[in-house]
Nucleic acid binder design. Structure first.
Length: 297
DNA sequence: CCCCAGGCACCTC
DNA sequence: GAGGTGCATGGG
């Protein structure tokens, strides 16, 4: 409770890369700046939690080799899980292939972790991600908070929790379209309704990887790619490799033999190519590196 | 004006 | 199962 400090003990950790690399849209920066602008270490990242009946607020920043946090809930275990603090990054890197582009990506953003975000918010935000830029996906989640989330006061400031399944299930398609969700509006509404009616996305946990992915695609607006994002960024399936436009371009350019003409077989091939067990880690380093440092930028 | 963005549902065959 | 099409919105 209250405020605290997690000593990183010299282990590699990069809060900005972890939270601004398009893995999660459930945090924001209290300087009001758009993501991708410089992070000096003085600004807090914020998120909300529903670990109890009342929503909580967590503020965290990285300074002087530690994570400082302030919260009205028991934040440390939540941060450890959500920020992947217990992942053995050197062991993970030891499992990846020696391709130059991969090593460059790890060098450039060393310390970035894979997040494990709350499943409902992860599902909804990646439904919103279809054919959409990172900054707008993030903006949509902020709009959903303000329109439908429970207001919270913390340390004299007012915030909105991410909406619950019940709160989004009663939204109308038109209300969601008015928030610029476009054709994703009915997907969000119908999936929220499914979850509110008891269809819990965390039920996939424990299944084999491909069975878990298949199970998640029962939600409206969730295909193979979004399901992989939920497995990787919420449910802890570090082998999941979401095949998005960026990674498909990378497959063409660097691993053309992995293109198999359909999602399942291409997924198996690239997963093997990227080291198997932790392939999703490498995918996320590649995604972040190519998007920020690729030939286009 | 164009093209594109962390795709998906739905329709054919 | 594979292949094509429509879909909202905003930024370059």
């Amino acid at each position: 409770m209250g405020h605290g400090r997690i000593d990183l003990d010299g282990t590699a950790f990069d809060l900005q890369s972890t939270l601004e690399s398009g893995q999660t849209y459930l945090w924001w920066r209290d300087d009001g700046e758009d993501y991708d602008s410089t992070y000096g270490g003085d600004d807090w990242y914020l998120t909300t939690t529903r670990a109890t009946d009342d929503p909580g607020v967590i503020k965290v920043r990285q300074r002087n080799g530690a994570l400082e946090y302030r919260s009205n809930v028991d934040a440390e275990p939540v941060l450890r899980r959500r920020l992947g603090l217990d992942d053995d990054l050197p062991a993970i890197r030891a499992s990846v292939p020696n391709a130059e582009v991969i090593q460059d990506a790890y060098d450039e953003y060393w310390g970035m972790r894979i997040v494990r975000e709350p499943a409902f918010g992860c599902v909804i935000s990646f439904i919103c991600s279809a054919q959409m830029r990172v900054s707008r996906i993030h903006g949509m989640q902020q709009s959903l908070r303000e329109a439908f989330g429970t207001a919270i006061e913390f340390e004299g400031d007012s915030y909105h929790a991410y909406p619950t399944p019940e709160q989004l299930a009663v939204a109308t398609e038109q209300q969601l379209r008015d928030l610029s969700l476009g054709y994703r509006a009915p997907y969000v509404q119908r999936t929220a309704e499914m979850v509110a009616d008891g269809d819990d996305p965390t039920e996939a946990t424990g299944l084999g990887y491909e069975a878990a992915r298949e199970l998640l695609t029962r939600y409206v607006g969730v295909g193979d790619k979004v399901a992989d994002c939920v497995l990787l960024f919420s449910l802890g399936y570090l082998e999941a490799v979401p095949l998005d436009t960026w990674i498909r371009t990378a497959i063409e350019e660097y691993f053309p033999d992995c293109e198999q003409g359909n999602y399942t077989d291409t997924s198996r091939a690239i997963r093997e190519q990227l080291g198997g067990e932790y392939a999703g880690y490498t995918q996320t380093y590649l995604f972040h590196y190519l998007r920020n440092d690729g030939p286009e930028s």
